[in-house]
């Protein structure tokens, strides 16, 4: 597959702060690339540099094989962007907003009318097309924001946290819409904080922190990076402090917690972890009602790689 985006050695500083530090990656045609990272990791700055909205200090950016610049109108005509902030006109109706932004790309009125209707259908706003943004709920507003960014049927779409603060129904609608866009052949760059969305949608993921790529790969490749093998949850009605501390002596156990009759044991990579623990329960005559194990999630990998301390 062809590279739709090629970023080579991109660096961007705000005075002394290095927001993006020697970043290089490619995006293949037709894939959904997840761009993950804590707040301030450089996701949005990277996106703005790629879109030629921001000056950058060093590096090279090519889109569809051509160098990206503010006047690269042929490239821009194939790009759609859904920004993090809702970017619509309060004074225009839902239809007016989509038609206005679509009209910046598509001049033919008949084609545009068809595209606007398609976008309304895609985000489920056909019945709201004569309403004004102030009359829409937060979820509907987000959907309008998406429709304004993709109505012109772009080949490359940037989605910057499109599901922030939306209700589960709207979120589901948005994710379904994104899948449809991918199925129609669009290449998508998707930034989000919601790991489950990445697991559902993205073919490949890049994790950024402090302006650098700290990991990249498919969901499975990233999960394989996790130090933990599994997380075991056991319902134990009664447990003495001695019995509890005994769990820490089981081979490969990295973390033990007990709260309200529920015990959580985290195992590092190794063999027969679950069997060893069941043996320990039997040997110490500890009564338990339920037991189940979970494989590490992308969220676990993310927290392992970026740390658990709070970010701004």
């Amino acid at each position: 597959m062809k590279n739709v985006i090629e970023v080579k050695h991109l660096s961007k500083s705000y005075k002394s702060h290095k927001a993006v530090d020697d970043l290089s990656f490619e995006v293949k045609e037709g894939e959904i690339l997840g761009l993950l990272g804590p707040n301030g990791s450089g996701k949005t700055t990277t996106m703005n540099c790629i879109l030629a909205l921001l000056k950058y200090n060093e590096g090279e950016i090519k889109i569809f094989g051509k160098e990206m610049s503010p006047s690269a109108y042929d490239i821009k005509s194939k790009i759609g962007v859904v920004f993090q902030d809702v970017a619509v006109f309060d004074e225009l109706t839902v239809y007016g907003n989509i038609d206005y932004f679509c009209g910046l790309y598509i001049q033919d009125k008949t084609v545009r009318a068809e595209y606007v209707e398609d976008a309304l259908k895609l985000v489920g706003l056909t019945e709201n097309k004569n309403q004004y943004p102030k009359q829409l709920s937060g979820g509907l507003l987000r959907r309008l924001n998406i429709a304004c960014g993709i109505a012109h049927k772009p080949k490359l779409i940037f989605l910057d946290e499109p599901t922030v603060a939306v209700d589960p129904q709207s979120r589901n609608n948005i994710l379904e819409g994104i899948k449809k866009l991918r199925d129609s052949g669009a290449t998508i760059i998707y930034t989000t904080h919601y790991m489950e969305e990445v697991e559902i949608l993205c073919d490949r993921v890049i994790i950024l922190d402090k302006g650098k790529i700290i990991a990249s790969g498919t969901n499975d490749e990233l999960k394989a990076l996790a130090k933990i093998e599994e997380k075991v949850t056991i319902e134990v009605p009664e447990l003495s402090p001695i019995q509890l501390s005994g769990f820490e002596s089981i081979k490969n156990v990295s973390e033990v917690s007990y709260d309200n009759g529920v015990m959580k044991v985290v195992f590092n990579k190794g063999k027969n972890n679950l069997a060893d623990m069941v043996d320990y329960l039997k040997d110490n005559k500890i009564q338990y009602s339920k037991i189940f194990a979970e494989r590490p999630t992308l969220n676990d990998v993310f927290l392992e790689l970026t740390g658990k301390e709070l970010r701004d």
Binding site: L53, K76, V86, F89, L104, Y105, G149
Partner: peptide, 18 residues
């Protein structure tokens, strides 16, 4: 409404091929 450093609508206009 047209300037990307002021409003998101400006950003949207700035990334359009117009």
């Amino acid at each position: 409404r047209c300037l990307p450093n002021i409003t998101s609508r400006g950003k949207r206009v700035a990334v359009a091929p117009t």
